[in-house]
Amino acid sequence: MAKHEYSYYPGCSSQTGASSSNLMRSVDTMCEELDVKLNEIPDWNCCSASIGYGKGSVLPRMSLSARNIALSEEHNPDQDIVATCAACWLSTKEASERLHEDEDMFKDVNTALAEANLKLNNKTPIRHMAEVLIEDIGFDALKEGVKKPLEGIKIAGYVGCQTNRPFGIAGESFENPMYLDHLVDALGGDSLPTYEKKVQCCGGALAFSEPEKSQEMIHGIIEAAYDNGADMIVTPCPLCQANVEIYQDEINAKFGSKFEMPVVYYSQLISVAYGRNSKDAALDGQLVKAKKLEDIAG
């Protein structure tokens, strides 16, 4: 039996062929290494993220998250739900908390769920993969498994918004969370704790609908990484990763910059440091190649 076992909510953007499929692949590798077993919630649905609200009002949105929790409680009983997408984690945890506080809404949601023959007990903790790494495994244990330290790579830890607010990781501050820096250090890399844009918003879903305004913020996020001497950026959030990585050509054309900054996931750093190859770490999924990581991974 695996050392740790969870009910897994992968989210739309992590599916095969979707924009964050490199997150999914590297998470699989990382979990193999850490002896973590993820049991996907059968027939999970989209949570509607932080953008569905305009058309989908409160109760429909709560029902979407409730359906995932109910399915998890039915098929993966007694397992914490773990999400890798910041927005998935946030909407699911938010729904769970609000349905605890608001009894009428809890009743309404169960009336809606009955249409799909489901019932919500709402007894399941909703957690982020970062919490699993920090709280259930711990930096010391993570450090012990390192086979190829990320020596000489300077890595800016970009936490973003939704992994950090409103819930965040226990013991961390909203304005200056340190866990990505601790993780980089544990893996033998060089953290850049003075990186000042670590919790700057990238525009989130508004990167699609308000591209000019968002790209200005993304420009600042990358520029600050260069100013701090970073070789690459690491992030826990799939939308942050996509937003900061994929528009660099457009940003260069607009701002006259020459950005070519790799943006990777923590799960890719761990996979490489644990001795896995570039393919297992999904480094082939990068638009801006993370050469220094590839060199170590081989």
């Binding site: 062929g17 499929s21 027939d43 649905n45 029902s63 359906r67 809606a112 082939d284």
Partner: peptide, 28 residues
């Protein structure tokens, strides 16, 4: 980079119990 699947336009990912999901949303 295999992060955008052109075949998705023909269908792509979805839930199996779509009618249950839609009835649930309609009720809400």
């Amino acid at each position: 980079a295999k992060r955008m699947a052109p075949m998705e336009i023909l269908g792509g990912h979805g839930v199996n119990d779509l009618s249950g999901l839609q009835k649930m949303i309609k009720k809400a």
